[in-house]
Computed example of a mutant assay.
Amino acid sequence: MGIKLVCYGVRDTEVEFFHKLNKYGYELKLVNTGLNHENVKEAIGAEAIMVRGNCMADRQNLELLAKSGLKYVLTRTVGFDHVDLEAVKELGLKSARVPGYSPNAIGELAVSHAMMLLRHTAYAVERTKNKNFIVDAEMFSKEIRNCTVGIIGAGKIGLTTAKLFKGLGARVIAFDVFQSDAAKEVVEFVSQEELIKTSDVISVHMPYIKDVNYHFINKEFISNMKEGAILLNTARGELQDLDAILEGLESGKVGGFGTDVLEGEKRFFFKDLNGQELEDPTVEKLVNMYPKVLITPHIGSYTDEALTNMISISYDNMNEYLTENTCKNAIA
């Protein structure tokens, strides 16, 4: 096609995938950092850009690029709150997203967090790293097959996570306003109240909807949890009130917390802040509660399969626009 496509936020490990999957022959320019007000100049003259979450596809950048020929804004993510849709429409641009990618990528991370917290492996390895090989009371644990795992949000990702936990022998229950037939074959649907009250492990897989479920995990949620239960969030940072979770951890109500997301996470994620005090005191305290708290920097989709899905679908979206002037995954 010969169209110039500038892709932002491309890590070194991803470069090979971008080239290998380029079956349409786009003229690629890969930029290591996420789109910001400085590196926007890398895309001047390009007809299309591809961004990821935490990129600044805001009015300032889009206006600048539109003046030099930008027509398409692709995001290789499911969520698109980092793309200014009003500006996209006003500038006559076209934009599309990736409606979904490997649910196993997120599910496997949730299970990894759960098992590390349940079996206290991070705690044990932290001690052996310091050559302390004594087995103490903290290392004693339940087996997952003797636990009830509660899945909040039983869509593709939640259902895949449920299957993984079930494969380990756990009893898996779920809450969702929409109960699919596929999910009914795997989980036992219960009320939200019952799930929170009876689960030994709670894993959240719901989308964030502004003005609907902001800080869904709050003081009341935590007060209703089973004593010492493990809480996991690999969905969206806006779903959790970190102050309430911190309080729950400090009181022992929450036995362990694993998260791949934080509200306002671009303040921290993808930066090396070693030796610095974080600007958010709550996040600072949570980081220091390791190994009771496990924080990963939004790596849920950082797998070979998920990356392949995200790039391939984005390339297909571009091709659809070029050949049909429309796209089934359009967001604007």
Rank of each mutant, 00 (worst) to 15 (best):
K4F: 02
L5S: 04
C7A: 09
V10L: 02
D12Q: 12
T13A: 14
F17R: 13
F18W: 14
F18A: 05
K20M: 09
L21V: 14
E27Y: 09
L28Y: 07
V31W: 00
T33E: 15
L35R: 09
N36Q: 04
H37K: 14
N39F: 06
V40C: 06
E42P: 12
I49D: 06
M50W: 09
M50Y: 09
V51K: 03
R52H: 14
A57G: 08
H82F: 01
L85V: 12
E86R: 15
K94E: 05
K94P: 02
R97S: 09
P103Y: 05
L109M: 14
M115Q: 11
L117G: 00
L118D: 08
R119Q: 12
N130Y: 06
F133M: 03
F140A: 12
K142D: 11
E143H: 08
I144Y: 00
N146M: 08
N146T: 12
N146Y: 15
V149M: 01
A154I: 05
L159W: 03
T160N: 11
L168C: 02
G169C: 07
R171W: 09
F175Y: 10
D176E: 11
S180V: 05
S180Q: 05
V190I: 07
L195M: 03
P207T: 07
D211E: 15
N213F: 02
E220T: 12
S223Y: 14
S223F: 15
N224I: 04
A235Y: 02
D241C: 00
I245P: 08
S251E: 06
T259C: 01
E263N: 12
E263G: 13
E265Y: 02
E265L: 02
F270Q: 05
N274Y: 12
N274M: 14
P281W: 10
T282W: 14
V283P: 11
P297T: 09
T303D: 10
E305F: 08
L307N: 01
N309L: 10
I311F: 06
S312Y: 03
I313C: 04
N317S: 00
M318R: 09
L322K: 03
